[in-house]
Design a binder for these strands. Structure first.
Lengths: 213, 213
DNA sequence: TAGATTGTTAATCGATTAACAATC
DNA sequence: TAGATTGTTAATCGATTAACAATC
């Protein structure tokens, strides 16, 4: 069951992009694609595409290329998108509310099942069809709904406590939007989305654009 | 003026994280820190920290370490955070509105100067103190306000057009939230924030957590 | 069959880590 | 001065690219 060769996270990070490009090809009716064609669309090397895919199996066929639909589905499976991830959002501030209204996640198998906050003036309000729940009811909620992913959209100061609490309750993954790193917990995977960091690297690129070119 | 050795983007991507940790040290009054101490806090090697910093100059002192305040400021300068980046947001949907209300950006030198949409029912409404402007007034706006960064928070289908238009008007950087890649334009730097991608890699990690450990 | 394109091995390139002389 | 810690060179490690035999 356990694969013997360790797959680097560099490869994993590229999978969603492959998935996206294949989804587009699928949508416009392209049946097959070679690593060469895909590489020129995506601006990567054909060699890298073949190496990446072969971490997970031989999806292609010599002389033909890859079947778009089946490769798309295979990558989705590798990413675990068809396993139904129940997702909760912690923090009903601007960002939390935006994410709760953002339907695209559901398309990719992340089903929102609850939104939480600790602010009495927010609790009981609705975001779309979701009532904002009291964070202090999270223990009971976890037992009944068994979410595996929590989106952390709370202020920096609250992030560590929330993460600890969720880790203790058996959450499997955290998508962290707080401007802070979250401690590692056994069995809890973390992905950070630091918007400020992206703005900063963009700023660097702008400042150094002339120098580089 | 132009530095001779090419600095890899791997290094650049780590700078905002250094900046954040140094900011925290600064906030709690720590005056100096060694690469060793910082490395154990950040979970990286001391060697990497020293290598990274030395891409930009010798900020430390043998036997002492680094002065927190001056290193913090230096990294901020390297990132170009003190140059005052006027920023606009394109798209006043859930995400655009959340970002417009998100004050943290201003703290780091990204000053919001305008929010745009193409939907007549939104144009004229307010987000905080910002009136949502008609995207068709962007040409005149660019001339008077000279924003250098645009946050793209429009639906996928509209992203390419918006980017092209802004590129033509001389925008310097795009922070792209759309679920699509944006074409490269001469003189326009792009940073992507693909939230779906982060959820997908998180999903992968969850699925493969048992196998890996 | 001939042409195309994969899967995979080998070569290259770059990034990370280790080591240590320099020096505060 | 002795101890600590840098800046930097050299060694290692891993990721990317190139090449090509296998084969559809």
């Amino acid at each position: 069951m356990t694969s013997s060769k360790k797959i680097s996270f560099e490869v994993i990070k590229r999978l969603p992009r492959y998935y996206r490009y294949l989804g587009e090809l699928l949508a416009n009716g392209t049946a097959r694609i070679s690593s060469k064609d895909l590489s020129s669309r995506m601006n990567v090397t054909a060699s890298q595409i073949r190496q990446d895919l072969n971490c997970f199996g031989g999806f292609g066929q010599q002389g033909y290329g890859y079947n778009v639909e089946s490769l798309y589905r295979s990558i989705g499976e590798i990413l675990g998108l068809y396993n139904g991830h129940n997702t909760i959002i912690i923090g009903a501030g601007n960002l939390g509310r935006a994410l709760a209204s953002y339907r695209s996640f559901e398309k990719r198998g992340f089903k929102l099942v609850g939104v939480f906050d600790n602010n009495p003036s927010k609790i009981g309000q609705y975001i779309e069809e979701f009532e904002i729940l009291d964070i202090d009811t999270i223990e009971a909620f976890m037992q009944t709904h068994k979410p595996d992913i929590a989106v952390i959209a709370v202020p920096k100061a609250a992030a560590a406590d929330v993460a600890k609490r969720l880790a203790k309750l058996g959450i499997k993954g955290l998508l962290n939007f707080s401007y802070t790193d979250i401690d590692a917990y056994e069995g809890v995977e973390i992905e950070n989305v630091h918007l400020s960091d992206s703005l900063m690297t963009l700023s660097y690129k702008i400042e150094n654009a002339k120098a580089q070119d």
